[in-house]
């Protein structure tokens, strides 16, 4: 395949040290420390309202930290410096840009040369199956297509670190399965480090190499469970069900 070497992301190593976040007096994140290895696919699960999104937003410095530090490849995290992409729960396609211009957005921001940008856009259009809709505007698209635009936009920059905050939360189950498989394919191909937040245990067990379980507020890391079932995973296989039940037990706070 053309430009094969280009399609490989470096994969970032993430170190989180004593991450603490308070909103006023409310302690939300309580002294969290962990590492994510290069190219690792880490799923983060936890009870509803446990501060998963706060966790990710602190990680990307959308929020200032109360204490602690986050290092990407040994340096303080900075989206202007590190090649990070973020896929939000809400749709975030730019309404004034066509599908292909949306996908190109991050590449333009980063000043990727035109030729290379176009190749990446074409590749992503094909992977998410939106070639026929390249000239359409977001208001002409369905919910699933919108989320695929966000995914394509995030992957087009070949990020070293990809953060996903319940990206499939609003999609129907069939589509979720399809996009989960697409995500795995992209991850395997690109070698990106992925942090995937979800409240859906089955989704976490289906996707992750490791599953980090968070506690109720104030949030700490309860445990990290390795998930060594080879891809493609079968949600009905006994080993899958067993692991899913185990993660469910770990998450229970009642």
């Amino acid at each position: 395949m053309m430009g094969e070497q280009k399609t490989k992301a470096a994969g970032a190593r993430v170190e989180v040290r004593n991450l603490t976040k308070k909103f006023g007096d409310l302690l939300v994140l309580d002294d969290i420390s962990f590492n994510v290895e290069k190219g690792e696919f880490l799923c983060i699960v936890g009870p509803t309202g446990c501060g998963k999104t706060t966790f990710l937003n602190s990680l990307t410095r959308l929020y200032d930290l109360t204490a602690g530090e986050i290092l990407v490849n040994g340096e303080a995290v900075d989206p202007k410096k590190h090649n990070i992409s973020y896929i939000f729960q809400e749709y975030s396609a730019m309404p004034w840009l066509s599908v292909e211009d949306n996908i190109r957005f991050g590449l333009d921001i980063k000043g990727v040369p035109k030729q290379e940008a176009q190749e990446n856009v074409e590749e992503m259009l094909e992977i998410v199956g939106l070639e026929k809709f390249r000239k359409q505007y977001p208001h002409q698209l369905s919910a699933s297509m919108l989320q695929r635009v966000s995914i394509a936009r995030a992957f087009a920059t070949k990020p070293d670190l990809l953060l996903m905050d319940e990206p499939y939360g609003q999609l129907d189950i069939e589509l979720r399965f399809k996009l989960e498989d697409e995500l795995i394919k992209l991850w395997e191909k690109l070698g990106t480090t992925v942090l995937f937040i979800t409240h859906n245990i089955e989704e976490a067990v289906y996707l992750g190499q490791n599953i980090m379980v968070l506690t109720n507020k104030p949030t700490k890391v309860k445990t990290v469970i390795p998930d060594e079932i080879p891809h493609p995973r079968d949600v009905t296989a006994p080993e899958f069900v067993k692991l899913r039940n185990y993660v469910t037990d770990m998450i229970k706070w009642w």
Binding site: T60, P79, S85, Y86, I109, R153, T157
Partner: peptide, 13 residues
């Protein structure tokens, strides 16, 4: 604000 966040995360100055 969602679009601003999205652009910031993609490294926009």
């Amino acid at each position: 604000p969602m679009l601003i966040r999205a652009a910031r995360m993609l490294g926009a100055k």
